[in-house]
Amino acid sequence: MSVLIVADHLGQGDSWTARLVGAARLLGSTVTVLVAGSGCQDAAVRLASLAGVDEVLYALHPAPVGVPVEDLAQLVLALAPGYTHVLATASTFGAELIPRVAAMLGVSPVTGVVEMSDRFTFTRPIHANGVLARLRVSSTPIFLTLQPWAFSSTGGSDGTPAPMRRIQDVPQLGLSWRMDFIPSTSIGQEDLSTAQVVVAGGGGLEKSGGFVPVQQLAKSLGGAVGASRAAVDAGLVPADLQIGQTGRSIAPKFYIALGISGAIQHVAGIKDAGTVVSINRDPQAPMAAMADLALTADLYEAVPALMEALGVK
């Protein structure tokens, strides 16, 4: 058994890749990480020091940021037949790449995996996380995207870095190029996908203006900032903070929803959260009904009072 991980070295890449390595160790005997792009040598060095990695392959491409998905797919297509499993995160990166390569090889991938029963059997949520389905795959290789929160990293570095090898450059098909990339303005320090505490704001903040209470509470608790679709649509926060069926799925220990009504599509993203807290003026909000702790209050008054009562700021 040998596993190839295609790493996304931009954004939260490294911490997610560490989790993929943790998952890969459950699947196979050897773990190879592939990283591609201009200047990816630095990422290769970092990834080589992750515990559980046996080899890092890196491939260069002249594009200044990232690699066009069609080009990366071509490279993965060439490498994949040497492995039993090919993994990427269930992020926008993996979601674009894995099905493309799998289809080119004529095999069915499994996307959004949250559990692995054995090397061939995987669980993924369907119907807005309302149902968990178990699938068995018999293709070679098996292509998977994994939800980062559902797997643990092997943890830290094991001292000796894995060997690094430069392979052929990424093919250039010229089908697409990236004109610009505007990173989200960082409004929280913690990574939303894997944070232990997430404070999220919703449509309740729209009219009253500002995401400040959400940010303050998140900061004081050392947590990440998230949002519902209503807050993203209102332009209060960048789209990549959206939690839910079409945004991210998360599983923090504490999820604090401020002014979030709790539409099915949003709740889909927090099904695996530990303690869910809702602060909402509307006692009838579905979020208040599903929460472990629900407070009916104006969040602009309740949040400062809560910070005071918790002794945090």
Binding site: A133, R134, R136, V276, I279, L293, L295, A305, A309, L310
Partner: peptide, 30 residues
Amino acid sequence: DVEWLDVRTPPPRKPGIRVRDVAELATRLK
């Protein structure tokens, strides 16, 4: 090459508590 074996619902969440005020929320969270 792919077979859907079975489906299950995630374990239901325990019923929650309506807290009276911020003080109770803070105490429970701690």
